[in-house]
């Protein structure tokens, strides 16, 4: 087992507002960590801080990814090192096709490792296969990124991208929101097929239901920008029954 992520006393602000108030979290290879918490508790901010969103400022602490402090790295460098964020609300990019978007990303990552660009035809075939992981309509791949996509299609697209990028650490910010029961099952099972002993998941969710399909090794409760409680998967069930007030 290797240390994938090691967050130590992380404090962060957005504008003037303090959002993260000292986060400590260790993730090892092969593990699934779930983060739960009420709306506005800072879950997405934590994801954004790790991915390098320019409006989140780290004011204290650090976050080591494979031994390297993320805080000073450009977002693209983090991705090149193997970090992936599945967005809660991914942006629309009119005029940029989803397949071209993914190919540009893969090629940028390959160039950072002095590898040649992917073969276009081979890549096209590969992503068609990856779309099958989440039963995504292959037509969507040729359309502008997220433009006119339904909420569910956006989520499928994010997980398909996870399949394409094969990250060491995938941070999934509410991959379940807006999905009906059937779609949730498909997306969750898709995520499961991507798990290996070498990669890890940080799964942010509001609800217990996705955890019935993706079994977490650890569950953390985030309130007011702090992890107030950690436990195993039974903690998720407890939160589901009792809410957050007892914590």
């Amino acid at each position: 087992m290797n240390n994938i992520l090691d967050i130590h006393s992380l404090h962060a602000t957005i504008g003037e507002k303090k959002i993260l108030n000292g986060i400590d979290l260790k993730i090892q290879s092969g593990e699934v960590h779930a983060i739960m918490g009420p709306n506005g508790s800072g879950k997405s901010t934590l994801a954004n801080v790790l991915a390098g969103h320019p409006s989140c400022k780290v004011i204290d602490g650090n976050a080591l990814f494979l031994g390297q402090d993320l805080v000073s790295l450009e977002p693209e460098v983090r991705a090149q090192l193997g970090l992936f964020l599945s967005f809660q609300n991914p942006a629309e990019i009119p005029g940029v096709r989803l397949d071209h978007f993914m190919r540009a990303g893969i090629n940028a990552i390959r160039r950072s490792k002095n590898q040649d660009d992917v073969d276009i035809l081979g890549f096209d075939r590969a992503i068609t296969k990856k779309a099958e992981v989440v039963s995504m309509d292959p037509q969507l791949i040729k359309r502008s990124v997220n433009e006119g996509f339904s909420g569910g299609e956006k989520k499928r697209s994010e997980i398909m991208q996870m399949a394409v990028f094969e990250p060491t650490l995938a941070i999934l910010d509410e991959p379940d929101s807006g999905l009906d029961v059937d779609a949730l099952k498909i997306v969750a099972e898709g995520i499961n097929t991507l798990r290996t002993k070498d990669n890890s998941l940080l799964l942010i969710t509001h609800y217990n239901r996705i955890l019935n399909y993706i079994e977490p090794d650890f569950v953390h409760i985030l309130i007011n920008g702090k992890i107030v409680h950690s436990g195993d998967k039974t903690l998720a069930q407890e939160v589901e029954n009792k809410g957050y007030d007892w914590l």
């Binding site: 991915a51 969103h53 693209e76 991705a79 967005f87 991914p90 540009a104 990303g105 940028a108 990028f165």
Partner: peptide, 10 residues
């Protein structure tokens, strides 16, 4: 940011 998060330089 979305593009950068996929490895593409700014």
């Amino acid at each position: 940011f979305y593009l950068q998060s996929r490895g593409i330089p700014e």
